[in-house]
Amino acid sequence: MQLRYVFSELRQGLRRNLSMHIAVILTLFVSMTLVGLGVLLRQQSDIAVRYLGDELQVTAYLCRDRDPNPSCAGEATDAQKQQITDVIENNPEVKDYRFESRTEAFDKVKELYGDERRDSLLAAMSAEDMPESYWITLNDPNEYEGITSEVVGLDGVSQLRDLRDDLKPLYEWLGILQWGALGVAAFLVLAALLLVANTIRLAAMARRREIGIMRLVGASTLYIAIPFVMEVIVSAVIAVVLAGGALAAFMYFGVQERISESISFMPWIGMEDYTVALVVIAILAPVLTVIPTLALTGKYIKV
């Protein structure tokens, strides 16, 4: 297949249908930005759950060496831990539990403070300074009194943290924002698909003479479809670049410069999460536009 042919057709097609392509690019740009935001919020929820536990959890911190709680007589012993494990396992309110070691706890702190602050703040700290803990997941967030009263009284337990009231609104908001972004994105994606369909129809109309001749002389369907597919791919790529830029701006001005400064009790999404969102939209946008294009060119240029 001659590249020259494909590119000259592509240039012509983009010029001929410029306003339609701009409409496709803008709707795809906004919808892909929203999809990206949805992905980022999802990542943020994961981070929050990993860091704070989900709304069904209570956390029991064990005594450590020189524990501020006077009832702690030094570090929790293996026998005490065994007893705590037994109590948790036998309590009907408990669905599940996880033991967090000192190293895991220390890793989380490192993550929270980030590289630059860690060096100064945590220089004197080590994993040994962190408490061990049990992360207990409840069957029902409203039924917790049995397990809390039982665990609090056990030897080796320093304190019980119950973040259910604090976390619930946070997760609710993250959820609302996430699904809101994806929901609006779904409508815009639908609009983008209809615009793609119209663009293809116009392009097929404009080129119907050529297409008729191509079919008659035996050009393959793929050969006929390629200029159309290239047109929408170009639009999709431009939209992805714009959406990537918008998400980068959100990450920089929104998350890095603002939220993570003002709400610093947990880590926030970073470069890796941005990359994930970018990959998602970079795959989604071309796929979403190419599939209807192939389906429609199949219809309009049927051999």
């Binding site: 079919r215 008659l216 002389v217 035996g218 050009a219 393959s220 369907t221 051999v303």
Partner: peptide, 14 residues
């Protein structure tokens, strides 16, 4: 089959 039609048409001028 539909995908073989272009090949057929290459043998026919119109």
């Amino acid at each position: 089959a539909g995908w073989k039609v272009p090949r057929l048409r290459r043998q026919i001028g119109t």
